[in-house]
Structure formats: structure tokens, C-alpha cells
């Protein structure tokens, strides 16, 4: 764990200030639900795509991925899924990681990693789209 919760000279009020309901909880919760619904058709498309491209050559793969519908759906998938995933992991960490420092590092770390991967995925989609030619 390595988490030492030493008693501090802060008063309980000072500790609570800035941590209370800051009207963010509902927003987080609603985003989670909305991305759940949004992901149903999107993940269906992803499964269909993987299934259809299971024997595809590189050319077939790039032609499929450079179709306008594919690009739009794939970018939407990256945005909503990554939002959903980072929110979900944040809740998991908040539930099960008792040490506040470790918890903050994990939540921010996951958000950062998925932000980088999300941008990289969208750039990869754009690269396929623009090199294949729509």
C-alpha cells in the first residue's frame, strides 16, 4: 500500500471543503449512462467490422476503413468508449483504492493513457482515410 494517513493539524471542516458535492457527481453518472446507450450500435458495428474483415487483405481493410460511414462511426466509437472506460475505471479506483494519493495517480494516469491512445487512434483513422482516398 505505502499509504500513510498521518494525522494532520487540519480541521475536519478544512478537509471537507472542496471535496463535497460540487455538482459533478450527476454529470459523471449521466455521462456513463449516455455513453452506455451510445455504445450499443457502435460496438455492434465494431463486431461486424472485425467479423467482416477477418480474411481481408490490406487493401480491402483500408478501403473499408476509409469509407465515410466507417470513419464517422469509428471516431464516435473512440470518443464515447474511451469516455465510458475512463469513467468506469475512475469509479473502480474510487471504490477500491483506499489511499488518496495512489487513487489520484491511477485516475489521472488512466485518463491520460486513454487520451493519448484516443488521439492516436483518430489520427490513424485519418491517415488511412487520406492515404486511401475517399
Amino acid at each position: 500500500m505505502g499509504c500513510s494517513d498521518k494525522s494532520s493539524i487540519q480541521t475536519p471542516l478544512a478537509k471537507a471543503k472542496g471535496l463535497g458535492s460540487a455538482h459533478h457527481g450527476t454529470h459523471h453518472h449521466m455521462l456513463h449512462d449516455i455513453t452506455t446507450i451510445a455504445n450499443i450500435p457502435l460496438i455492434g458495428w465494431v463486431i461486424y467490422t472485425i467479423f467482416s474483415l477477418r480474411n481481408a487483405t490490406y487493401e480491402e481493410f483500408t478501403v473499408w476503413m476509409s469509407h465515410p460511414v466507417s470513419i464517422v462511426v469509428a471516431v464516435l466509437f473512440v470518443l464515447t468508449t474511451f469516455k465510458h472506460v475512463t469513467g468506469e475505471l475512475q469509479v473502480v479506483f474510487e471504490d477500491y483504492v483506499p489511499c488518496r494519493v495512489m487513487r489520484t495517480i491511477l485516475v489521472l494516469g488512466v485518463k491520460l493513457v486513454f487520451l493519448v491512445l484516443g488521439v492516436a487512434s483518430i489520427v490513424a483513422l485519418m491517415k488511412i482515410a487520406f492515404t486511401t482516398g475517399v
Binding site: V85, G118, S121, A124
Partner: peptide, 18 residues
């Protein structure tokens, strides 16, 4: 959590494949 891990692998792989 498992799907998150697979999503990470899938997307990294997709970026590499592109």
C-alpha cells in the same frame, strides 16, 4: 475491466496496423 484491457490492446494494434 477485462474489456478495457482488450480495448487498449485493440486500439494500440489498430494504430500500429494503420
Amino acid at each position: 475491466i477485462i474489456l478495457t484491457a482488450t480495448l487498449f490492446v485493440l486500439c494500440s494494434w489498430f494504430v500500429a496496423v494503420a
